[in-house]
Design a protein around this nucleic acid. Structure first.
Lengths: 184, 184, 184, 184
DNA sequence: GATGAATGAGCCTTCATTCAT
DNA sequence: GATGAATGAAGGCTCATTCAT
């Protein structure tokens, strides 16, 4: 899975052949098919593992008895910190959904939606508690938060100007400013 | 080009064959190669046309003698409004860069960077003029702005809850709140 | 088609690869798939062509105003004579039906059944006219006639002890003796 | 062997994989190769077992001191009755000979020829004794008898209009009529 | 006796591209 | 401008077989 992720990131799922994968591992094609039923099954495994872990970690954030502000920051940190920990898997995750069979894609899409809805629920809680502005559209803001963070996967280079930690702080700040009421 | 974009959006560049394209048009493969040197040349044309138009429209926004705030809003509107006008082309644009030859990819990446740097320059101008907060990192905010807008291409459905116009307003508001100084 | 029949006869459909076929023709695999949609499509074409010709020739025999005895002999001659004319195609025809998709197999089986039913109808006519014995089961006798003739394809060697013509005479005689009433 | 016969009948030898066989049994491939040296060895075993049993039973028929007429009827009954007893094995027997190595195929073909020659010898004896018509070609009639009976394996459905016993009577009658002299 | 993992060859099919007409 | 036919390479997958455990 690790090797295949690296290759999918580099060349894309369709352009990566099973041969590429097994060559990188020094095994043979037959061996691949002993462990995976198909190329798509491998892709599905990558998707599943990624979203499940993300959801689990999000869950543990939500259980804390912390203000919405705090929870949202944690989720941003979770998503951005992941670039380092989970590495390039997120890249595959965002780009290659379409190569799953509809049946599988649906399952993943559903789990993704759950993740987004949890963000939405934090936003709603924050609006109720007065932490966030009353006039926000929580669904669209949830998408915006995901946009800011996920887009990083397209350009962020570990070892560049900023660490993931610094970037997370920067974006937490930007997002909270965007949604908290103007102070009097 | 139109037909091929539709197919690339649907199945991805690699998974779309020349046969798919010509079948959709009711012509033959030979004919394709009369008009395009290669499959990659077609992809390059799509990329080029898209970014050039975007840059041109951005240019005309920058030439106005308007406050930075205004210019930034216009750029957000430009990007989001495009989902309707240019439709799915942006999708190809964001996903299939990697299938260009390095030489071509470099050219496109350079133009994309220009677009981002122009946003950066608007942000810098705004900071200087006091419209935006002094402590912002303009480069990262430019990326954030692109994240918010470009991410929409992943989930926005024309004819859904919001129009592109409404979404643009919503996001302009979110972004400006995120970067303007807290009012006293 | 000719080459592929020869190979299918020799090694069987499954054991014959497209490579085998195109090698025998001095062309390339790509070329094969330009002309046939799939290996199974080729097999279907062979089946279709064979049974259709057989049915057409049977039809022309049935239209004659001849006694049932005569018609049955003609049909035996048709089937046995074919070994020389159509050669090995019949072999494929009898052995490889199972490799057609159910949908295609059904179509072929239906046409085969028609052929048999025509034999049955000759038998019934002969029974009615008193040419054949009253107590015969026409369906089973039709199968028996097909058994006698089709089985030849398993062992008959052109250029052996007998010509197809002689064999046809021999079998016509055997069959007619088997079904005509005992003379007083 | 039982399971493999069922699969060979259904899909053909080439199209049946070892995996198919061991899956049907709930064991593993390694296990198959503990018991059989190769896929072909299994096929050979099937062939051998079938023809040897047939020959043994034919032998016991031949030893009876009965008229040729009687013996031939017994052999027809043996062959047709087998559809019920031995079931689908005969199907494999007739179709998959070609997948044996030449060396093995030769051995089987030789035993098959013996079976046919025994029928021939019954025919010759019957001709000599005046039971059968003088002008018959015993070899060709032996082939015809095998055709009538073996062809049944292609279409006979247990539980259909006729039992194997009834079919055997019907065909015995047809064949004897075909070869016995016309009564005065 | 049986298993799980691996192998290498081969299979059917698809593909981007070419080119004579 | 367009077509039909061909090509060679590659792609996903299956297979019979092997072997250490």
């Amino acid at each position: 899975m690790q090797q295949s992720i690296a290759l999918f990131v580099d060349k894309g799922y369709s352009a990566t052949s099973i041969q590429d994968i097994v060559d990188a591992l020094g095994v043979t094609k037959g061996s691949f098919y002993y462990h995976y039923k198909s190329k798509e099954a491998l892709l599905m495994d990558i998707h599943r593992q990624y979203i499940e872990e993300l959801l689990a970690r999000q869950q543990s954030i939500l259980q804390d008895a912390a203000p919405a502000k705090e929870k949202l920051s944690e989720i941003v940190r979770l998503l951005i910190g992941d670039m380092e920990k989970q590495g390039p898997i997120a890249n595959v995750y965002f780009r290659e959904l379409r190569h799953l069979k509809e049946e599988n894609a649906k399952a993943i899409r559903a789990r993704r939606a759950e993740f987004r809805e949890q963000i939405e629920s934090v936003l709603i809680a924050g609006i109720k508690s007065g932490e966030f502005r009353r006039e926000l559209n929580p669904k669209m803001i949830a998408f915006a938060v995901l946009g800011v963070t996920n887009w990083s996967y397209q350009w962020f280079q570990p070892g560049g100007e900023l660490s993931t930690g610094e970037l997370a702080e920067l974006y937490t700040d930007f997002i909270l400013h965007g949604i908290m009421p103007t102070q009097k």
